[in-house]
């Protein structure tokens, strides 16, 4: 019977229309990238709940001595994730954020700004203070009042935000700046 069944199925398929033209693989790749991007945002969500746990745990520690710990750059990174952009990307980045260390010195900060200002790849350079980062953070996490309450401006890093004139040059750019004194983390994003 199974052989016979196969013949019948083949007859069903006899009236198959001519498949549509077009670049099937190209369309699938474009659509697939979209799926991957959305999946990335969902993963970001679980990272966020991990951060909540960490921040809450920190605040429960009795009598914290010294300055409050800086929330990991992961939290800050999420604070800048414009929904239309993909963060992070390994190559071809249009936008770059450079997060500074908690203990960055005035000299390091100025040195970095001068270097970025003089770099032909950089345009629209903006410095973001802790307070500005916190304002963004509050908006982004308005649905999680616990997280917002657990974090204050001093725990978020300062950063430089910039756009690259040539997205394909991002790996070389990252190599030049990620290791500089005072830099905590550097990430590139692709914005339409």
């Amino acid at each position: 019977m199974p052989d016979h069944l196969k013949d019948l199925f083949d007859r069903v398929l006899d009236d198959e229309p001519v498949p549509p033209d077009g670049d099937l693989a190209g369309q699938a790749m474009a659509q697939g990238r979209g799926i991957r991007r959305r999946r990335g945002l969902i993963v970001g969500g679980s990272v966020a709940s991990a951060i909540v746990a960490v921040v809450v745990a920190l605040n429960l520690t009795p009598a914290p001595a010294g300055p409050p710990p800086q929330v990991s750059a992961a939290a800050a990174r999420l604070a800048q994730a414009e929904p239309q952009c993909t963060w992070p990307v390994p190559d071809d980045a249009t936008d770059v954020s450079i997060f500074l260390r908690q203990d960055v010195t005035e000299r390091q900060r100025t040195g970095l700004r001068d270097a970025l200002d003089g770099d032909p790849l950089v345009r629209n350079l903006v410095f973001e203070t802790r307070q500005e980062a916190y304002e963004k953070f509050k908006v982004l996490w308005r649905d999680s009042p616990d997280l917002v309450a657990a974090v204050d401006a001093s725990q978020l890093p300062e950063s430089f935000r910039l756009e690259l004139t040539t997205p394909a040059q991002y790996p070389a750019f990252a190599a030049r700046f990620a290791g500089r004194a005072g830099v905590e983390d550097l990430i590139g994003g692709m914005c339409p």
Binding site: A74, P90, A175, D185
Partner: peptide, 20 residues
């Protein structure tokens, strides 16, 4: 991510080429 940035730093500009 930190690892990725470290890769960029350590392996110079060849990294971007390899990735592409």
């Amino acid at each position: 991510m930190n690892e990725r940035v470290a890769n960029v730093v350590s392996s110079d500009t060849g990294w971007g080429f390899t990735r592409r």
